[in-house]
Amino acid sequence: MTIKKISKDAFGKFVDGLIKQQKVMGPCAKGDRFEFEQLDSSSQLRLDYDVTLRPPNRKYFLPPVETLLTCEVGGGYQSVYDDTEFVLLGIHPYDLAALNQMDQIFSRDNYDTHYMKRRLAATIIACDVVTPSKDVFAASMGTATAEAGFDVLLTDIGDSYLMETGSPKGEKLIEKAQGAVDAAAGDLEKRKNIWKENQGRLSKHKLNCSSSYLPKLLEKAYSHPVWEEKAKTCFSCGSCNQVCPTCYCFNVQDDVSWDFTKGTRQRAWDGCLLDGFTKVAGEHEFRKKREDRFRHRLYRKGKYVPEKLGTKTPACVGCGRCVSACLPDIANPVNIYNRLIDDLGLE
């Protein structure tokens, strides 16, 4: 592990150098919001962003639509892969936690070559949060700062950035950074303070229990009235799924060329809140009720996924996107979990 310090000017030049060699995706302004885009110049980069519209981990590793295969009608199938090298620059610690979780899901049990080829072609430069978004609660989920899973971690300490490497890939990358010097003890002290402050600042909603208690809490909450109460005003619009960095459900669809000889098979984002998500060809729909779908998402985040992966971090990383995206304002996981704690207690 190396920790270097680099002035913001020099960092800009470093990024411009990277852009010449490979694709670099970074946070850019989109109106008064932010979104990860491919950079043409370091001047577009907004590392002071609060949160992006789409979670970068999903956008780049499990894109909204992706071709899996091509095929010949009546003949064989060929895999389609995208393994262009790129740098993902500026992902926040909470989205990084989601990325690490998704890496596990797509590499475990059945190794998903489509996801993993893209993933292995990427270099991850994470970045500590400078401006907290209006609904972020990463601190409650243990994802306000990053411990692992990055190649490089950036921290804005005022006039310069600290760059910590987390892998040989990261080491190699920052070798190219001209003007980077070893970080001094005082710089590290500054960074420590920022991390400490971020625990407080990334806490717009506060979960009234440790995030590792959620599976236990949910064990006794299955028939609680909150599901029906909240779901009464649920549109089943799936916005809470679509914006979530840890949602990974997908649908698979075929299309065919006009001469009906060649087909493509694509996967696209799907969401468990949507009507029809569990409907089988015979028309039977297994999770038909709005409240059942509403509950399923909160159980996945708080219980099913962390238990499956055996992790302490729940499958909600506290990015706050669903809170802002849900028009009837019912999606906030903290509100629901706190309500359950109020009613069911902590033991």
Partner: peptide, 19 residues
């Protein structure tokens, strides 16, 4: 048990019954 299944390999989420 029958469920909607898209991927068959534990990724797509369609076939889930609780956990």
């Amino acid at each position: 048990l029958e469920r909607k299944m898209k991927c068959g390999v534990g990724k797509c989420g369609h076939c889930q019954i609780n956990h």
